[in-house]
C-alpha cells in the first residue's frame, strides 16, 4: 500500500472518530445532528475504500440525505431545551463509573478479538451459483434471488414503519421549512430531471454492476424529500389520490409476494425463480421496489397520515 493510501485511510478514520464523538457527546442538538450528517458522508467514503460501491451509494443518499432531513425536521419541532424525554432515574455515580469502565473493557476486548474473527467466506459458493440466478452482479443476485426472503421482510419492515408513523395522526403542518427559501423551488425543479435520470441509470445498471433497487430507490427518495421540502408534492395531500398512494406504497411488497407465490407454483419452492424468466422478473421486482422505497421514504418524512 502506498503512502498516499495510508495517509488517506488515517485521515478518514480520524475524521470518522472525531465526527462520531461530536455527534454522540455534543450537548447542543443542532450541532450533534450536523456532525452526524457529516459522519455519514465520511462513512460513504469508507465504503468506497472498502470496495463496497453499492453500500456507498445507498449510504450517501439515505444516511446523509434522508436521515439528515428527518433529523433536521424533527429538530425544528422539538423545544430548544436539552431534554425532550421523560426525566430518567439518575444513577448513583459509582454505578455510572462502573458502567463506563465495563464498556471501555469490552471495547478493548473487541479490538483485540476482531482480527481473529472467522470470516464468513461465502464468496466461492455465491460464485458457483451465479449462472443460475439470471443476473451478473453478485450483490443483486443475493439481494433478489438467493436471499430474496430477507429483502422481502425488509420491505415489510419499512412498510410497518410507515404504518406506525401514519397511525400517530395527520401530517404535521407546516411541512416546508419555517423560513421561506426563495431558491428552493427553483433548485428542486432544476435538479428534478437528475433525480429521475440517476435512479433509472442505477436500475438499469443493477443487473450487471453496482447499482440496483436500493441505491436507485434511495436517490429517488432523497429527490422526493427535496420536493416535499419545496412543497411541490401537493397530490400526496389530496383526498382522491389517497387510494393510489397506498397502492403504490405496497406495490413493491405485493409484486415480490406475487413473484414468490409464482415460484411456489412453478418450482414448488417459495421465492425460487426459474432461470428462463429470472432476469425479467428480477428487473420488474427491482423497478417496483425502487418506486416503493422512494415513496416510503417520502411517506416517512411526512411524519403523519396525509389527506386528513
Amino acid at each position: 500500500m502506498t503512502l498516499a493510501q495510508w495517509s488517506f485511510d488515517l485521515l478518514l478514520a480520524g475524521g470518522l472518530l472525531w465526527l462520531g464523538w461530536q455527534a454522540l457527546f455534543e450537548k447542543r442538538r443542532f450541532s450533534a445532528v450536523v456532525h452526524f450528517m457529516a459522519f455519514n458522508l465520511l462513512m460513504a467514503l469508507v465504503w468506497v475504500r472498502l470496495s463496497a460501491p453499492d453500500i456507498a451509494l445507498a449510504e450517501a443518499a439515505i444516511g446523509a440525505g434522508v436521515t439528515g432531513a428527518l433529523l433536521l425536521t424533527a429538530l425544528g419541532r422539538l423545544p430548544s431545551g436539552t431534554s425532550s424525554g421523560a426525566h430518567p432515574h439518575r444513577w448513583h455515580p459509582h454505578w455510572r463509573y462502573l458502567a463506563v469502565i465495563s464498556a471501555c473493557i469490552s471495547t478493548a476486548w473487541l479490538i483485540a478479538v476482531v482480527p481473529q474473527l472467522p470470516s464468513p467466506g461465502l464468496a466461492g459458493e455465491i460464485e458457483a451459483v451465479m449462472p443460475a440466478t439470471g443476473v451478473d452482479h453478485a450483490v443483486t443476485a443475493v439481494l433478489l434471488n438467493i436471499r430474496a426472503l430477507d429483502t422481502l421482510l425488509e420491505v415489510a419492515v419499512m412498510l410497518a414503519a410507515v404504518v406506525l408513523v401514519w397511525s400517530l395522526g395527520p401530517t404535521l403542518r407546516p411541512l416546508p421549512p419555517a423560513t421561506i427559501l426563495p431558491g428552493l423551488p427553483a433548485l428542486s425543479r432544476l435538479l428534478h430531471p437528475l433525480f429521475l435520470l440517476v435512479p433509472t441509470y442505477l436500475l438499469w445498471r443493477g443487473t450487471h454492476a453496482p447499482g440496483g433497487a436500493f441505491p436507485a430507490g434511495a436517490v429517488l427518495g432523497a429527490g422526493g424529500v427535496l420536493m416535499l421540502l419545496a412543497d411541490e408534492v401537493g397530490w400526496m395531500q389530496r383526498q382522491h389520490w389517497q387510494r393510489l398512494l397506498r397502492l403504490l406504497l405496497v406495490s413493491g411488497l405485493a409484486l415480490f409476494v406475487l413473484v414468490g407465490l409464482g415460484g411456489l407454483l412453478m418450482t414448488g419452492t417459495f421465492l425460487s425463480i426459474p432461470l428462463g424468466v429470472a432476469r425479467l422478473l428480477i428487473m420488474a421486482v427491482e423497478i417496483a421496489m425502487a418506486l416503493s422505497i422512494a415513496l416510503m421514504l417520502m411517506a416517512l418524512y411526512l411524519y403523519g397520515e396525509p389527506g386528513q
Binding site: 470496495s51 463496497a52 453499492d54 453500500i55 445507498a58 449510504e59 439515505i62 444516511g63 470470516s119 464468513p120 467466506g121 461465502l122 464468496a123 466461492g124 455465491i126 460464485e127 453478485a138 450483490v139 443476485a141 443475493v142 439481494l143 436471499r147 430477507d150 429483502t151 425488509e154 419499512m158 436500493f214 434511495a218 422505497i293
Partner: peptide
C-alpha cells in the same frame, strides 16, 4: 475474494 452476503445485509440494514 469479497463475500457479497454481508454487503447485502448492510444494504438492507441501512434501509
Amino acid at each position: 475474494g469479497t463475500d457479497p452476503v454481508p454487503h447485502v445485509m448492510v444494504l438492507t440494514g441501512i434501509v
